[in-house]
Design a protein around this nucleic acid. Structure first.
Length: 594
DNA sequence: GCCGTTTTCGGCCCGACTGTTTTCAGTCG
């Protein structure tokens, strides 16, 4: 059983516990364990085999470790079976409908026998839900609306799509009367690879006027909630957008709060409590006295959020400073150790867009690109690059007219003719060489030796069983000519899941052999993903970031690669194509002929 | 269920909005 499957089972346990009204902190413990397990690149099964102690992982205690061991050993979890005997698994589905949480889902099941979205819709249409105590006509209507959008909302959009949706909305909002500051926050600001909804934060002389302007945005399909400081709308694209308006002195605190992640915020607030402080979206406050939880809860109802002495909140830096922390870049705010690193003054200086000196994967009309070698070279040169690699496909990809030996040599002749016209940029003669089903490379050795850079990638047989897939990729990178493993897991957003293989073993082999791993910057791929990149760095892999451009415009997708790299805490020194040409060539795996 | 340089017990982040049960629980982020 692999890590993702283990995580899924534990997530189910958490969901069912929540429905059964278990201690919410117990539910959270399961969610935390899921997060930890999902972020592991080493298979837990393997760690157990080695005799590793899983309780050393954060959020994994005795119980979770024994769950994992049981799952690895038997493929099942008795605890989950017990929970399922008490509450149907399908109730979790109901909680995906906006407005339905664990309590209401359970009541709908107990009182109306509703077990699925289909049951729910039938009951709502029959007017049975409005008749239920605690529900009403409005709840029923909201449920019916929610069912329609539940599926769409469950589908998070890619970061590039979020950029496209957000930009015109921000333009609209900036024209709101009395608007002072405006920032987009949330996972969009953390540059996460996918974004669930859009979070906007503003200060304004006249909040009500800004809210009015917000709900009048032509892209708004409906308004879900509107109060004095907070407004939620659903856009025609199906995306939810929240606008929150706060006082100027709270803007920094609110930005921290709204940027998240939730886990990062929880850690900050817990740290604050330890220091007798309270952090909210309004600021950092000195609590009058250290109160016990019960007293705080009692006080919470009647207390206004401005109680206590306000210490900070105007800027994000001020909030972090009250915890004796430096400002933490949004991309890192996931509670993956960034708080500890910040406390020790060990936050890395993250890679920046301007650090990149070249792009090491792109295509031309020789295979499936849209432009000529000359046009791509010119486009790279315009972007200030020192070098670029043209990497058309090899012959196995007949569909895109992959190059055989004869056409590859023709392409070289064209390169020799064109390159002198662009003396300011070095053209690296390269190829995206297919890794065949048996792990061999799709180009003759004598030609591989004549390339400046050999990129190897999988484009077929994505569904081999994990053992064979691992062997296949290992064999390919063991070929002495292989220098970079491109889009290593093969995933494509909304099109194809990552291949199933032992990523950790492959990364380890890459580190040992000196084969670099690619971060494919195309937002459809973003492969390797952030957690895998962190592991790659830890193992000492060299990393390249490339756009896989099929047109000059695609070269600008590099920003998504840089953002993902930042999320993985990569620095300039970790990335081969952030180095000058000589250093890049020196750090690539040595060639037989060189 | 996890966690611990005050703790192996007693904590575990904080606030807005909605609908409805007229005083607050449930949900959401």
């Amino acid at each position: 059983m692999d890590n993702l499957e283990i995580a899924r089972v534990l997530a189910e346990v958490g969901d069912l516990l929540e429905i059964q009204d278990a201690n919410p902190f117990r539910v959270r413990a399961y969610r935390n364990a899921v997060r930890t397990i999902e972020a592991q690149t080493t298979p837990l099964a393997e760690m157990l085999e080695r005799g590793a102690d899983l309780t050393e992982l954060p959020g994994i205690g005795k119980e979770m470790a024994s769950h994992v061991a049981e799952l690895v050993r038997t493929g099942r979890l008795a605890a989950l079976a017990e929970l399922e005997a008490q509450t149907p698994r399908s109730l979790v589905e109901l909680m995906r409908v906006p407005g339905l949480g664990p309590k209401k889902a359970k009541r709908l099941w107990k009182e109306l026998g509703i077990e699925s979205i289909a049951d729910l819709e039938k009951a709502a249409r029959a007017g049975k839900i409005a008749a239920l105590e605690g529900f009403g006509a409005k709840s029923q209507e909201k449920i019916l609306q929610g069912i329609g959008t539940a599926q769409r909302l469950a589908q998070r959009m890619g970061i590039a799509e979020a950029d496209l949706v957000l930009e015109p909305l921000l333009t609209h909002l900036r024209q709101a009367p009395g608007l002072e500051r405006l920032e987009a926050a949330g996972s969009w600001r953390r540059r996460k690879e996918s974004v669930g909804d859009l979070d906007l934060l503003a200060t304004a002389r006249d909040p009500a006027a800004v809210m009015d302007h917000f709900v009048r945005y032509p892209g708004v399909a409906r308004v879900d909630a509107r109060g004095e400081t907070k407004c939620t709308v659903v856009l025609r694209s199906g995306v939810q957008a929240d606008l929150r308006i706060v006082p100027e002195k709270s803007f920094g605190a609110a930005l921290v709060y709204f940027t998240g992640s939730k886990e990062h915020n929880i850690r900050l607030r817990a740290m604050a409590v330890d220091r007798g402080l309270r952090i909210s979206e309004y600021g950092v406050f000195q609590e009058p006295t250290r109160k016990r939880r019960a007293e705080r809860e009692e006080a919470a109802a009647e207390r206004d959020p401005w109680a206590g002495k306000w210490l900070a909140g105007k800027r994000e830096e001020d909030v972090y400073r009250t915890l004796r922390l430096p400002w933490i870049p949004p991309e890192l705010r996931e509670d993956r150790g960034e708080i500890e690193a910040a406390a020790k003054g060990k936050l890395p200086k993250l890679l920046e867009r301007g650090d990149l000196r070249g792009d090491l994967q792109m295509h031309t009309t020789w295979s499936d690109g849209q432009e000529t070698v000359a046009a791509m070279l010119a486009a790279c040169s315009e972007r200030g690059y020192e070098y670029c690699a043209i990497t058309d496909h090899s012959k196995a990809l007949a569909m895109v007219r992959g190059l055989d030996a004869r056409r590859l040599k023709q392409q070289w002749r064209e390169m020799d003719r064109v390159a002198p016209k662009y003396p300011q940029i070095r053209l690296l003669r390269s190829m995206e060489v297919d890794i065949l089903a048996d792990g061999s490379l799709d180009l003759e050795d004598e030609l591989l030796e004549k390339l400046d850079l050999v990129l190897v990638t999988v484009h077929s047989k994505f569904d081999l069983d994990p053992g064979r897939q691992t062997k296949r990729i290992l064999k390919a990178i063991q070929h002495p000519a292989a220098q970079v493993l491109g889009h290593p897991t093969g995933r494509r957003r909304g099109i194809r899941e990552a291949m199933r293989f032992d990523v950790d073993e492959v990364l380890q082999a890459c580190a040992e052999l000196g084969v670099a791993v690619e971060l494919n910057a195309n937002p459809e791929r973003l492969d390797l993903k952030d957690t895998h990149l962190m592991r790659a760095k830890e193992l000492g892999c060299k990393i390249t970031i490339s756009t896989d451009a099929h047109s000059p415009r695609d070269l600008d997708l590099m920003r998504y690669g840089v953002e993902q790299a930042r999320r993985a805490r990569l620095t300039k020194a970790d990335v081969l194509n952030a180095q000058p040409l000589a250093k890049l060539l020196a750090q690539l795996r040595p060639r037989a002929g060189a």
